[in-house]
């Protein structure tokens, strides 16, 4: 380590980003802890104290991470296919937005199809109907037989006759 000049190498960007995130998280926790009333009562340790310990620990980890970013050889993460990941995440987003209006089957069918798209099944004209039918079966089993309360939409009403 001695005599080594860190500036000869680019720092590990991911570790630096983590250092930044940890510092922000630690800061938010400390700010939130300061806002709490110290009602530790007889224990002497209130809700803010434990939060503060964690906040300081996060700041320390941020420093450690920052130092490591300059000293350690960055491990190159595996190359990622961002488009695939976005399809899957988008499927979840679609489900969240549609769940309570369109009902479980349609929303979850879209999640199914978008996930399949992310994994390489490109034909949405096939996967969306398959997904909706699959989700509808799941709905009928879980809501119908097991009385799990799942959000119902037009399709569910059609099949449960309500």
């Amino acid at each position: 380590m001695s005599g080594y000049n860190p500036s000869q190498r680019r720092p590990d960007g991911a570790a630096l980003a983590m250092a930044g995130l940890l510092a922000v998280l630690g800061g938010v926790i400390l700010w939130d802890a300061a806002r709490l009333h110290q009602t530790g009562g007889y224990s002497g340790v209130g809700p803010g104290d434990v939060a503060r310990w964690i906040g300081y620990a996060l700041l320390a980890l941020a420093v450690w991470s920052g130092v490591a970013a300059f000293r350690e050889t960055p491990v190159r993460p595996p190359r990622q296919d961002a488009v695939s990941v976005l399809w899957v995440a988008g499927g979840l987003g679609a489900q969240i937005l549609l769940l309570n209006t369109a009902g479980f089957a349609i929303a979850t069918g879209l999640l199914f199809a978008f996930t399949a798209r992310g994994f390489g099944k490109r034909n949405l004209a096939l996967t969306i109907p398959v997904g909706i039918i699959f989700a509808l079966v799941v709905y009928l089993v879980f809501a119908g037989l097991l009385k799990l309360t799942l959000p119902a939409g037009p399709l569910e009403h059609l099949f449960l006759g309500k």
Binding site: V88, F112, F119, G120, A135
Partner: peptide
């Protein structure tokens, strides 16, 4: 995998 993971997500 497309079907397997789609099912897992559901």
């Amino acid at each position: 995998k497309p079907w397997l993971y789609a099912g897992i997500m559901v």
